[in-house]
Structures are given as structure tokens and as C-alpha cells.
């Protein structure tokens, strides 16, 4: 169908046709840039001239200054430094656990959607049963028993508990892609299963997967915050994370209510990071015109 016909048909049916494939837009690039800066800072933190996060550098509760861009916390630690180092934990948990979830749930979901039949029924009933279970409770329970806590353990627990969700999303995406003609065509031509899954199915579920991956990272970063509030994440004196910084700030604000930078900066950084992830994920999804997969 040519563009002309689309326009004419749109007028003919008197339905306003929403503009498909909205331009990517400046705000999307701002978000991408913001995400990139955070990832770079997290990766390069040891090399950058960032104040040591655990050293009590200065007076507690100092306001913003050139020496301490975001001031100091109630132990005199540099907030900017702690935020920069904290991104290592927060991003690490987010990206690490999603790597596990997608590494296991992605191939399983695609396989189930591709093979259908018994394999799909068995895997899906197991996965969907797990999905019915509120995973946060399982995460809280396991983490509270599995001591001493470490970044690795947190990543593993969140990662494994997210497998069923990723499985469902990827299975749904692969199901809709797998019913398309080119997959049937490849199958008729006698292509091997593995080849079809990687060459035909994967490129088609990749946009859905990528946008869901971004949403997933955003959710897990928030989840790390919840765990920090419950005292189940990394302890703040071992290493800062955005979550435990906010929790620290919350507790000390009860005593020193005037030190607002203490809570505003970490919570703003966390929310802005999640916002950027959500926004880019959303744009990706509408750009590739993927029908909304229910999360």
C-alpha cells in the first residue's frame, strides 16, 4: 500500500490515523545520553577523580560547594562520590539480574513458542504457576535467610525470580513472530530449528526483548531500593547503593530535617535513571511498532 492510499483511506474512513513511527525526538536522545553517562560513571568510577565514598572527608551535613558538589552526609561522606559509586551496585543489580533472567527465560520462552506442543504446555504451566506467586515475597524470604549477603547473591535471587516473567514476555513475542510467513517459509525450506530460532525468530523478538529489558532493569533498580529499605541489600557501610543511600537519608532526616540534599540527590538520580529507562523502552516499543505485551 502506498502512502497516498493510506492518506486517502484515512480520510475515507474518517478515522484520524495516528502518526506511525513518531520521530525519535530530542528527549529520547537526552535520555540515552543520561543512561550512557550513568553507565560510564559506574564502569569508570575507580579511574575518575571522584571522592572516596566511604571516607569521612569533611564535616557532616555540609551544603553544596565546589569541593562537595552535592554536599556531605551525616557522617561527612561526600554525597556525589557515594552516588557515583552507588551506581555500581544499583546498575550491577539491575543489569546482572536481568542478564540471568534473559539468559534463561529468553531462550526457554522462544523455544516453547517455536516448538509448541507438549514442551510448551509443560514449561508454560510451571512458569505460569511461579508467576502467580508474588515474587517479592520469595525474594525477601530467600535473601533474609541466605547470609552473609553479597552483590552476587542479590543478583542471583532477583535474576532467578524474574525468569518466569521474561519467559512469558519472550514466549508471547516469539509466538506472534513465529506465526508469520517468513518463519513458515524458512521451515518449508528445511532450515534447521536452531537456525530458524536464531536467524528468523531472534531478530523479530529483539525489539520487544530490548524494550522489556530496559523496563526490567528499571524495575530491579527500584527493587534494590526496596530491599535496602528492608535491610536486605548491601549494607551502606560496606558499599553505597542508591537504595541504601535513600534509606540512610530517610533515617537521618528524622534527626536533621534541614539536610535536604541528602535525600533529594539520591532519590532524584534514581528516579531520573528509571525515567530514562522507561522512556527509551517506551520509544523503542512504539518505534518498532510492537503490540503491547502485558507486563
Amino acid at each position: 500500500m502506498t502512502n497516498n492510499e493510506v492518506v486517502i483511506n484515512a480520510a475515507e474512513s474518517v478515522v484520524e490515523q495516528p502518526e506511525k513511527k513518531a520521530p525519535i525526538g530530542i528527549f529520547t536522545w537526552i535520555c540515552v545520553g543520561w543512561l550512557a553517562i550513568n553507565v560510564l560513571v559506574a564502569v569508570l568510577a575507580p579511574l575518575l577523580p571522584i571522592p572516596d565514598p566511604n571516607e569521612m572527608i569533611s564535616m557532616p551535613g555540609m551544603g553544596m560547594s565546589f569541593d562537595h558538589l552535592m554536599g556531605t552526609d551525616d557522617l561527612g561522606r561526600d554525597i556525589f562520590g557515594r552516588l557515583a559509586w552507588g551506581s555500581r551496585i544499583s546498575l550491577g543489580v539491575g543489569i546482572g539480574s536481568m542478564a540471568i533472567a534473559f539468559g534463561v527465560g529468553g531462550p526457554l520462552g522462544m523455544l516453547a513458542a517455536y516448538r509448541r506442543g507438549k514442551m510448551d504446555v509443560i514449561m508454560s504451566s510451571v512458569m505460569f504457576t511461579f508467576l502467580a506467586f508474588p515474587s517479592i515475597i520469595a525474594i525477601i524470604a530467600v535473601l533474609s535467610f541466605w547470609t552473609p549477603r553479597s552483590l552476587g547473591k542479590i543478583i542471583i535471587v532477583i535474576g532467578i525470580s524474574s525468569i518466569p516473567l521474561v519467559y512469558r514476555v519472550m514466549r508471547a513475542a516469539a509466538l506472534s513472530a513465529g506465526s508469520k510467513e517468513y518463519v513458515t517459509a524458512a521451515r518449508v525450506q528445511g532450515a534447521r530449528d536452531r537456525r530458524i530460532i536464531f536467524r528468523e525468530l531472534l531478530p523479530n523478538v529483539a525489539p520487544t526483548g530490548l524494550s522489556f529489558l530496559l523496563f526490567g532493569v528499571a524495575t530491579v533498580i527500584a527493587l534494590e531500593g526496596v530491599l535496602a529499605f528492608l535491610g536486605l541489600s548491601i549494607a551502606p557501610d560496606i558499599a553505597p547503593s542508591w537504595g541504601n543511600m535513600i534509606n540512610d537519608a530517610r533515617q537521618s532526616l528524622n534527626n536533621v530535617p534541614q539536610n535536604w540534599p541528602l535525600i533529594i540527590f539520591p532519590s532524584a538520580i534514581l528516579c531520573l535513571f528509571i525515567l530514562a529507562l522507561n522512556f527509551v523502552g517506551d520509544r523503542l516499543r512504539s518505534y518498532f511498532d510492537v503490540t503491547e505485551v502485558k507486563l
Partner: peptide, 22 residues
């Protein structure tokens, strides 16, 4: 869309700070 990116544990902290404390 912005609020969607604010986790509830942050909302509750700010609500306590503003409503109950301030």
C-alpha cells in the same frame, strides 16, 4: 509518565517528610 518512574518507597518517604514532619 514521570510518576511512573517514582517507586512507591520513595513516594512514601517524601509523603512522610512533607505531611507528617514538615
Amino acid at each position: 509518565f514521570g510518576l511512573l518512574s517514582v517507586p512507591s518507597f520513595i513516594i512514601v518517604v517524601y509523603l512522610v517528610l512533607i505531611i507528617a514532619i514538615k
